[in-house]
């Protein structure tokens, strides 16, 4: 599931020469929740895998709790891509959202237009920290329940279990289905648009 230098890069995989503006959306959640599946469902390329590393000396690392190696930490993430038009391209990052990884994602996700928190009802607690962190950062996000067909949860119960702000959209999806994954991204983009529209200049100066 990973590429190497020896792998030929087909010409067709390249972006148009006019591509100049890249955007990003983060997909976070616990292990095995369907992050890669969701990215794959909508991406025009097979999801690629790479790593972010950070050393203690690398700067600004104040929380290494849970990290085995004090000197250097490496965490894999994957990403896919959707070319929006001849000049713009959207990258989708799938990354584990547990607490011990966030110091790596702060940089990777900075400037993201929004985030999707994927939730699996078998391990709801895996998503708590990601939600806290996104709220703190002021990054717009929605929550998507990737339904593995386990115990049935109503969205209201799930919202309560997540202690989710009523203003944050909560949707259900099947990350394996392109149409469903696409709806999740549309829900996020619409949410960001309504947040942006409701933030009047008066409110902006009040904060």
């Amino acid at each position: 599931m990973h590429s190497t230098t020896s792998e030929p890069v087909p010409e067709s995989v390249g972006l148009p020469q006019t591509a100049a503006h890249a955007l990003k959306i983060a997909v976070v959640g616990g292990f095995g929740v369907g992050k890669t599946t969701l990215v794959r469902s909508v991406s025009e390329i097979r999801p690629l895998n790479t790593e972010e590393t950070m050393t203690r000396a690398g700067g600004g690392v104040d929380d290494l709790s849970g990290v085995e190696d004090k000197h250097s930490t490496t965490v894999a993430f994957d990403f896919g891509r959707i070319t929006l038009d001849p000049t713009s391209v959207l990258y989708l990052f799938g990354a584990p959202g547990q607490k011990r990884f966030w110091f790596l994602w702060d940089r990777l996700f900075s400037g993201a237009l929004g985030a999707v928190v994927l939730v699996d009802t078998r391990r709801i607690e895996d998503s708590w920290y990601a939600i806290d962190r996104l709220e703190q950062q002021g990054t717009p996000f929605i929550v998507a329940h990737n339904d593995f067909g386990g115990e049935a949860y109503s969205l209201e119960d799930l919202r309560e279990a997540l202690d989710l702000d009523p203003a944050v959209p909560l949707v259900r999806c099947d990350a394996r289905e392109r149409a469903s994954a696409k709806q999740v991204l549309i829900a996020l983009a619409e949410h960001v648009r309504s947040l942006a529209a409701s933030r009047t200049p008066a409110q902006e100066s009040a904060t």
Partner: peptide, 17 residues
């Protein structure tokens, strides 16, 4: 053709850093 930094990392099999 234009390529994102993360794509370069993935294709070269090297960390983004």
């Amino acid at each position: 053709s234009p390529t994102a930094v993360v794509e370069v990392a993935a294709h070269l099999g090297l960390p983004v850093t």
